[in-house]
């Protein structure tokens, strides 16, 4: 599980740190951290429906912000709990393009153990950075 929830950052909200050796890995880990804030047992989410995200941004960290926001959007708009299967990020003419395939299913109150709802991804202390071993991000979620 390449993410951890932080005890000493935020009080009414929830902060996490996620990491990966590649950019794609850190995006995937951060997406799971958002979902794991809402659902305790991610393994109980059956991967029966597919949604594709196509996003572009001129800043890499805002691309991550928009990517994470999609999980919150589908949770409300279609009650879909999604996990990332594949993600590709490319830079062309100073614009970052993301294409992701996500899979999941509709929330089932009996099988999916809820923690708390995520209202939004915040930009407070939002950070995506390159490290010696890959990439790392810190995110505060509005609860």
């Amino acid at each position: 599980m390449p993410y951890e929830f932080l005890e000493e950052v935020a009080t009414a909200d929830i902060a996490f740190h996620a990491w990966g050796t590649t950019l794609e890995e850190v995006f995937k880990a951060a997406g799971d951290a958002v979902m794991n804030t809402m659902i305790e047992n991610l393994d109980a989410i059956a991967l029966s429906q597919t949604r594709t995200f196509n996003l572009e941004e001129d800043a890499l960290d805002l691309l991550l912000f928009n990517f994470l926001q999609e999980f919150v959007y589908y949770k409300d708009s279609e009650l879909l709990l999604l996990r990332t299967r594949q993600v590709q990020i490319e830079e062309q003419a100073s614009i970052y393009h993301l294409s992701a395939t996500t899979q999941g299913e509709q929330l089932d109150r009996d099988r999916h153990h809820q923690r708390v709802d995520v209202k939004a991804i915040t930009l407070h202390q939002f950070e995506l950075k390159k490290t010696d071993t890959g990439w790392s991000t810190q995110v505060i979620l509005d609860i």
């Binding site: 929830f5 932080l6 005890e7 000493e8 950052v9 935020a10 009080t11 009414a12 909200d13 929830i14 902060a15 708390v116 609860i143």
Partner: peptide, 11 residues
């Protein structure tokens, strides 16, 4: 007003 983080409280 909260005085403790959610992550700490659940522990």
């Amino acid at each position: 007003g909260r005085s403790m983080s959610r992550t700490k409280a659940r522990k």
